[in-house]
Computed example of a mutant assay.
Amino acid sequence: MGVAIRDILVDCREPVSWDDLSGIAAVDAHNALYQFLSIIRQPDGTPLMNGKGRVTSHLSGILFRTANFLEKGIRPVFVFDGKPPELKQETINERRKHRAMADEAWKMALQEGDLEEAYRQASASARIDAHILESSRELLDLLGIPWLEAPSEGEAQAAWMVRKGSAAYVVSQDYDSLLFGAPVLVRNLTVSGRRRVRGRMVTVNPERIVLSSLLNRLGLTREQLIEIGILAGTDFNPGVRGIGAKKALKIVQKGEFESVIAEKQPDFNPAQITDFFLNPPVTDDYTLEWSAPDIEGVVEMLCGRYDFSEERVRSALTRVSVKATQKTLDAWF
């Protein structure tokens, strides 16, 4: 879910061209994997799989999206979630329940022959397991792409890396990194292009949110943005019933956050959530190094073990190093 503040950010999102995105991008790895697993599916919602029934949608997403990044001068570093905070356990449990329900709804829709509903429910049932994580990290290693595991929330670590200058921006579909202090968030990089939304195909383009501009436009401090998130709902609390982002914005602008919390949720102390957003566990123990891909290693993994088309794999790997009008992959090293 992330933080439910989308409705107040409509005027804060600016379109951005791929030409303006060259540089190091801290990618929220779990968010990207969920996007790949949700979107890269058959028309009936079945994920891509190899002959042994192993899901490969995420590997397809990593290969082709990473090739696209590198071709456009973007050097990604994938930041994986570490141990989730106790504050998040209720959300994790709810998500598991929701995915299980979506999985059952998918099977029912298939039986009824409703492919549109089947695709929608199948997308909602996407889950990340040990196989998804292990194979993703193996492929990133073979592609020469750095990755790290955060002490806790990946978005917090990614935000920290941008704040300290290790990366230019965070890549995520969610807005949590803004509450964690990310100076720049770029959305739609992992889902740009033609995709299915609510049963129809649309074109999705990259968009950028600059935290300082957002705060200035709304007349807020970062702490107040966190208060809006707490009222509307975050991964660490369900929010206040009946209060969405727009209403929360008015409450905070009037200085009524504490009084509303005291009235609506007298047993709730938001201080620990505020502190987690302001001071999340992060690490400086990482090294960002990109290397040329192990082409034969990638081919062996994807084609030998996961039944990918060798022609498509080699073509994708060629794209990252051959383009006359741009830097080649070798120019980074």
Rank of each mutant, 00 (worst) to 15 (best):
114 D>N: 15
114 D>Q: 10
114 D>H: 15
115 L>T: 15
116 E>M: 11
116 E>T: 15
118 A>L: 04
119 Y>E: 10
120 R>H: 04
120 R>T: 10
121 Q>K: 12
121 Q>F: 03
121 Q>E: 11
121 Q>D: 07
122 A>M: 11
122 A>I: 10
125 S>R: 11
126 A>S: 14
126 A>E: 08
127 R>I: 07
127 R>D: 13
127 R>W: 01
128 I>Q: 11
128 I>H: 06
129 D>T: 13
129 D>R: 04
130 A>W: 02
133 L>W: 02
133 L>P: 12
133 L>S: 11
133 L>C: 05
134 E>Q: 12
134 E>I: 03
135 S>C: 01
137 R>I: 04
137 R>N: 08
138 E>K: 07
141 D>F: 00
142 L>R: 13
142 L>H: 07
144 G>C: 03
146 P>W: 00
146 P>I: 00
146 P>L: 00
147 W>C: 02
148 L>F: 01
148 L>T: 06
149 E>F: 00
150 A>D: 05
151 P>M: 02
151 P>R: 01
152 S>L: 02
153 E>T: 06
153 E>V: 03
153 E>M: 02
154 G>V: 04
155 E>A: 05
156 A>Q: 06
156 A>C: 05
157 Q>N: 07
157 Q>W: 00
158 A>E: 11
158 A>T: 09
159 A>W: 02
159 A>V: 05
160 W>R: 11
160 W>M: 05
161 M>L: 02
161 M>I: 02
162 V>N: 06
164 K>M: 04
166 S>M: 01
166 S>F: 00
167 A>K: 02
167 A>F: 00
167 A>M: 05
167 A>Y: 02
167 A>H: 04
169 Y>M: 02
170 V>D: 07
173 Q>M: 07
174 D>Y: 01
175 Y>T: 14
176 D>P: 05
176 D>T: 13
177 S>E: 05
177 S>N: 05
177 S>L: 03
178 L>V: 14
178 L>R: 13
178 L>N: 15
179 L>E: 09
179 L>V: 06
180 F>M: 10
180 F>G: 14
181 G>P: 07
182 A>S: 13
182 A>W: 03
184 V>Q: 11
184 V>F: 03
185 L>Q: 06
185 L>C: 09
186 V>R: 05
186 V>K: 09
187 R>G: 09
187 R>T: 09
190 T>Y: 03
191 V>Q: 13
191 V>E: 10
191 V>L: 14
193 G>Q: 09
194 R>C: 04
195 R>W: 12
196 R>D: 07
196 R>T: 14
198 R>I: 09
199 G>D: 14
199 G>W: 06
200 R>D: 12
200 R>Y: 08
200 R>C: 12
202 V>C: 12
202 V>Q: 12
203 T>Y: 08
204 V>M: 09
204 V>W: 05
206 P>K: 15
206 P>E: 14
206 P>D: 12
206 P>T: 15
207 E>G: 05
208 R>P: 06
